[in-house]
Structures are given as structure tokens and as C-alpha cells.
Design a protein around this nucleic acid. Structure first.
Lengths: 199, 199
DNA sequence: CTATAATATGAACAACCATTCAGTTTATGA
DNA sequence: TCATAAACTGAATGGTTGTTCATATTATAG
């Protein structure tokens, strides 16, 4: 059912493989998954149409490969940054900031991840479910440490993902005003998360 | 550039038009926009392939029509419910609850709205930008009334949309645990928005 | 009842696209 | 250098889909 990706062994093969992946990322971002043809990808990569099938059984397998790479990349980056600061408040702040900065550095990432909902719903569910479960661990520890109220950690995971995703969306698509200074945006977000919005 | 939708005049014509729209909603939800063919829609609607083109110039125009209908429907419903209670806290609570309840009642709505990002990015931007601008008006008034801290209303709009969307996603896709009692989920969300999460 | 407009049909056409494959070139290890 | 494996090619194939159109049916106003 699930065919395999063939990882090349030679230097040339690796270059071709990378050219396919890079072209696909660019095209999936610019035209979306469904409007991107194998022909588009191979042309942009500067290779023959048949060469694609040396490495990938089909377009879906290529998309899954890219999604997994992205997922690992984002998680690793957030984990590194978060580990470098102390206290849940600081960790939360750095987590949100890193997430949004990642979206700004790699604007295609947002598009490609969200599009999974329309390519294979299971991919989307696994992505956010996995993200939430990682989140929960940190939150649970913070409650034990007395830094956080005794909240429903699972619900808070989704709330914080929602906040990061939609503020990121605003910044990325430049919706509304004041999207220049990321650091000040994150400060504002944290202030709201810290104290709530109602008097 | 933008061709017109033809609204039928007779009773039979209206029935056919509705059958097309209902079939399309069902299929866009189940298989996604791109995997739904005009043939699928006309077959499910029980009409000939050519009949589709009596009313819609192409698939995109049909999608836009459905998206606009949905947008009006959601906004109207939220506006009605929110108008029936007093105080910003209660309004916010009812707004989030109505939004999630709508997603549960019409599970296709989520899919179809988010998919706009992959059909025509402008549709997506207009949708959320419009939603945020409406939100802001209410928040500004609440600050004047002294019910809310002097927050960045635009930022808070996106934060609250993010919360509602991701908690809605969790409930709709049944991610994690405890998705049965919507009322208690909303209570928890409100508690967190009210007081923040950090001690 | 009848003329006319509205509605409906589905075969036919043309464009597009994923995938295969027989043959060619290139790299590499011995 | 040379044998072998890896990498590469692009024309050809077959299936799918959006859209048109000549023709047919149905509804309705007068």
C-alpha cells in the first residue's frame, strides 16, 4: 500500500533528490499541492519527468516526506530555544516567539502544514495531536512547580496553539496593523495570557 | 473576468440550483474541493452534466457562492446570540460557544472555510480580516465601558479567533479527551481567558 | 391552446496529467 | 581501464475531467 522513498547514494543522486524537494516546497507554497503537477516539479528542478519516479512513488509520498521534515525541524528548533531559558513563563514566551519567527523565516511552512487537512486528514490530526501532547508535558510540570494555576493542560495546549497560530497568521499575512516588531507583539500576547483580558 | 451566477426563476429551476449547492457542500466536505469533479456534483444532484453550467460558470464560482452563504450564516447567528446577553464577559462566552456549536452542527463549515486558503488566498484573508474587524468594535466598546483592560484590540481579536478555532478543532475532530460537554469546555476556556494561566 | 422562455440532457471534444519503459549516460569501485 | 550499478531521459500511453452544443422537454404567460 505504502510505497517507499528511495534515498540516493551518490553525490549526483542526492543533488537531484534535493532539487526535487526544494522545487516541490516552492511550488506547493506558490500554487498549492493540487495545482502542482509532477511536470511542474521536474521542470523547475531541471530534470526529466521520469527521474521523479526514481525517488518517489508519487506526489503524495513526496508531500508526506516534506511535512515530516518540516515537523521535525520546527519541533527541534522550539525545543532548543525553550531549553535555553528557565521558568514556564519564559519558556512559553520563547516558544511562541520561535514558532512565529519560524513562520516568518519559512513562510511556506504554514501553508504546507495546514494543507495536510485537505490532502490526508490523518496527517493533520497526527500533527496537532502530537504537538499538543508534547505541550502538555511541559504544562503539567509547571503546575507541579507551582508556576501555573491548576488548569486543564490539554485544553490549554490547544488554546496556546490557537493563539500562536492565529497571531502568526496575522503577522505572516500582514493582516491589520503593527506587524513589524515581533518582539513587542509577543510581549503583548504574554501580557494577555498572564493576566487575562477582563477586569 | 468574473462570470455571473444565474439565479433560476421557476420552482423547478430553484430545486435544481439547491440540489447542486447541497451536493457540492456535501462533496467539498467529504472529498475536498480539488477532488470533487463537476461530474460528481451533477451525479449526486441527479442531473445532467450540462445542467450545471446553466447556473454556475465553473466550480470556483460555486465554491465562492457557498463560502459567502456560510459566512453570512455564521455571522448572523453569532450576532443574534451575542446581542441577547449583556456584558462583555457574557458576550465573549456566548460568542465562543455559538461558534463551536456551529462547527458541531455544520461540520462541513470548518473545512470549507479553511480550504479557501488553498483555493484563493484572497478569500481567506478577507474572511478573517472581516471577522477581526467586527470583533474589534465590540472589544473597543468594552474597554470604554471599563469591563476590559486597555489591550491591543486587534491583537486580542486574533487571539480570541485562534482560541475559538483551535478549541473548536479539538472538539470537532475529537482530539484528546473530554470533548462531550461543550458547556463545560467553554466554562474552562473563559476561566483561562479571565484570569490568565500564570500565578 | 399556443408561443415562448426556461430548463435539461449527455455524447463529443480537447486539454491535461500521472506513470511507464526501452534506451542512454554517468559515476564508481576494483 | 573497465565492468557494473546508479542515475537519467522524454516520447508514448491511457485515463480523467471541464466544457460545449445540438437537441429535447417542461413550464408559463397571454
Amino acid at each position: 500500500m505504502e510505497q517507499e522513498i528511495k534515498i540516493p547514494t551518490t553525490r549526483n543522486g542526492k543533488a537531484t533528490f534535493n532539487a526535487i524537494v526544494e522545487s516541490a516546497i516552492d511550488l506547493f507554497y506558490k500554487q498549492g499541492y493540487h495545482d502542482t503537477t509532477i511536470g511542474n516539479i521536474t521542470t523547475q528542478a531541471g530534470i526529466g519527468a521520469g527521474t521523479f519516479y526514481l525517488y518517489f512513488p508519487n506526489k503524495l509520498a513526496l508531500y508526506k516526506y516534506i511535512l515530516m521534515e518540516l515537523q521535525h525541524d520546527i519541533r527541534r528548533r522550539i525545543a532548543e530555544k525553550v531549553a535555553s531559558v528557565h521558568g514556564r513563563y519564559e519558556k512559553e514566551k520563547v516558544g511562541i516567539e520561535t514558532f512565529i519567527q519560524y513562520a516568518l523565516d519559512y513562510p511556506y511552512s504554514y501553508n504546507i502544514i495546514w494543507e495536510s487537512l485537505y490532502i490526508d486528514k490523518k496527517l493533520f490530526i497526527d500533527y496537532y495531536d502530537g504537538f499538543a501532547k508534547r505541550y502538555e508535558r511541559g504544562l503539567k510540570q509547571s503546575i507541579i512547580d507551582g508556576e501555573m494555576y491548576d488548569v486543564d493542560t490539554e485544553l490549554v495546549s490547544y488554546i496556546l496553539m490557537g493563539v500562536a497560530n492565529f497571531v502568526g497568521l496575522k503577522v505572516l499575512l500582514n493582516l491589520g496593523r503593527d506587524n513589524d516588531d515581533l518582539s513587542s507583539i509577543v510581549d503583548n500576547v504574554m501580557k494577555i495570557i498572564r493576566t487575562g483580558i477582563f477586569k
